[in-house]
Simulated scan of single mutants.
Amino acid sequence: MRTPGLPGDSRYDDPALGLGIPEPERTPQVESWTRAAGPDGAGGDGYGGMIARLRGFLDHVAAARLDPGTVAALSDDLGAWCERLADAAVAEHEQVFGHRDDMPGRGQTMAPALRVHEANRFSVRGTVRFGRYFLGGNGAVHGGAVPLLFDEVLGRLSGSGGRTRARTAYLHTDYRSITPIGAELDVHGWFVSEEGRKRVLRAEIRHGGILCAEAEGLFIVLNPGQP
């Protein structure tokens, strides 16, 4: 079996590699992994659709070789939107980006959105696709994006089920094989142990039967008043 994204695979030279990935739909969730949401998975306010377009935009920018005129026009448009959004800036505790637990990926684009299929206080299973924006080279996900996903998954699981919030103390990642762009990947995270303020969790990413990467993280429960 050929690994997608490597020489010999029919998609190796595909200029659309990792493009057109749909926004993960809302699926039934358990515990506090997500809250109940509206039909679009975003409380019915359209925010999820906007984030989906933003993810798609970043994928297409990453894939494009732009002529000078397009670069200038896009730069002007982005500048105008920066000025418009500046008037809507709020304090961190009022921020929406990355705070939408009713949406896959919490309504952010820093990491790819995990579609959760099974979850409880001690384990989570789901699927994820890395878009072209996360390309490192030769069809492989950038090495820095893999631990970013692991931290997102394990950090959320560490604080699920009504637990006190914790922060990452360390995150060790082992790369076992290529993590392909554009492919549906299986993600599994689980608790290993919990003692005092220390929570140890592990996670893995698989493409079919191939282990792409695995990680172990230590999370420390915050003391009262700690940010």
Rank of each mutant, 00 (worst) to 15 (best):
A37E: 04
G38L: 06
P39I: 05
D40Q: 00
D40M: 00
G41H: 06
A42G: 15
G43F: 06
G43C: 04
G43K: 07
G44N: 06
G44P: 00
D45F: 10
D45C: 13
D45A: 11
Y47G: 06
Y47F: 15
Y47E: 08
Y47W: 13
Y47A: 13
Y47S: 13
Y47Q: 05
G48N: 03
G49F: 07
M50G: 10
A52C: 03
A52S: 11
R53M: 14
R53K: 14
R53Y: 11
L54V: 14
L54C: 12
R55H: 14
R55G: 11
R55T: 10
G56P: 03
F57E: 13
D59W: 07
H60P: 00
V61H: 05
A62T: 08
A63T: 01
A63Y: 02
A63F: 07
A64V: 00
A64F: 03
R65I: 04
L66S: 04
P68Y: 04
G69Q: 14
G69Y: 07
T70A: 15
T70K: 07
V71C: 08
V71T: 12
A72N: 08
A72C: 09
A73L: 09
A73K: 06
A73G: 08
L74C: 00
S75I: 03
D76W: 03
D77G: 11
D77Q: 12
L78T: 02
G79L: 02
G79R: 05
G79M: 04
G79D: 11
G79E: 04
C82A: 09
E83M: 02
R84H: 03
R84K: 02
A86P: 03
D87A: 14
D87R: 13
D87L: 11
A88G: 03
A88K: 02
A89L: 12
A91S: 13
H93F: 10
H93V: 14
E94C: 11
E94Q: 14
Q95H: 04
Q95N: 09
Q95R: 13
F97W: 12
G98C: 11
G98D: 08
R100P: 02
R100W: 09
